[in-house]
């Protein structure tokens, strides 16, 4: 087995005193691709939000260990600097800050070194080209007035520019047309390698094309009720969640 990247031990999470996660355990190794599935409202988004350190979610028990260090109490920016990245389901619109300025600021915060402006601009332009984003988007305010698809592309652009070692993709493919899903998938593939790992929440097998899925977890009632290989995806697509639960 590859080097361990993320380890979640008996994680209990609540929102406004409502218990959502009730003892989740999960391990992700370097370079692995994990898929998180489960019916709506079972806590999939809660899990990735808790890994990112969203202050609205309170951790009532358990630990989150990243690269061997306990990060359970850390703030989101510290986790990002360690190499965790969350692609949001609904990215925030923030007026007044251009997409380029934002990515530059974040990249500097993560690398801790000043950037060479022109090299950065070139790199940004190249990545935007790959994602089929018009260059003027760099000057537009962060996600303001972006369509659903453009927002998701902007998320993947950040993934490519910030180069995290663990990406949490929260339904990054939802609401996208076929072409956009392909572009996003290509972006993810370009980033993914034997060191970088993925945890993907999806209802759509399309986004997984070209990725070797190592493990599939089914989350229900605040716990992981089933873990298996890529074959689970097909079973769930055909028979629903109950089909895989029965042989539990």
């Amino acid at each position: 087995m590859s080097e361990q990247l993320l380890k979640i031990e008996d994680l209990k999470v609540s929102v406004e005193e409502k218990k959502i996660l009730d003892g989740v355990c999960l391990e992700i190794g370097e370079g692995e691709v994990h898929v998180l599935m489960g019916p709506n409202g079972t806590g999939k988004s809660t899990l990735v939000s808790a890994i990112m350190g969203d202050p609205r979610y309170s951790v009532d028990g358990g630990r989150i260990v990243f690269k061997g260090e306990d990060i359970t109490e850390e703030k989101a920016d510290a986790r990002a600097r360690r190499g965790i990245f969350l692609s949001f389901q609904t990215p925030e619109e923030i007026p007044g800050i251009s997409l380029e300025n934002f990515i530059r600021t974040a990249r500097q915060a993560i690398t801790g070194t000043p950037l060479k402006v022109f090299a950065f601009k070139r790199e940004l332009k190249a990545e935007m080209d790959k994602l089929g984003m018009a260059p003027e988007y760099a000057e537009r305010y962060l996600n303001v007035g972006f369509s659903g698809g453009e927002k998701k592309k902007a998320e993947i652009l950040q993934l490519l520019m910030l180069k995290p070692s663990l990406a949490l993709l929260d339904e990054t493919d939802s609401g996208l047309d076929v072409d956009a899903v392909r572009t996003v998938t290509e972006g993810i593939n370009a980033w993914h390698n034997e060191h970088n790992s993925l945890l993907i929440i999806t209802h759509n097998a399309k986004i997984l094309e070209g990725l070797k899925v190592d493990k599939v977890h089914v989350l229900e009632g605040g716990r992981i009720v089933k873990t298996g290989g890529a074959e689970l995806i097909g079973e769930i697509t055909e028979g629903g969640f109950n089909a895989v639960k029965e042989d539990n």
Binding site: G53, R56, D77, F85, F88, I94, F102, A106, A109, Q158
Partner: peptide, 18 residues
């Protein structure tokens, strides 16, 4: 918006800077 602050922080920017 606290959501906006979290979004920026999730990209590695400190709360103060966010």
């Amino acid at each position: 918006s606290e959501e906006a602050v979290f979004y920026l922080m999730s990209r590695g920017i400190s709360e103060e800077d966010a």
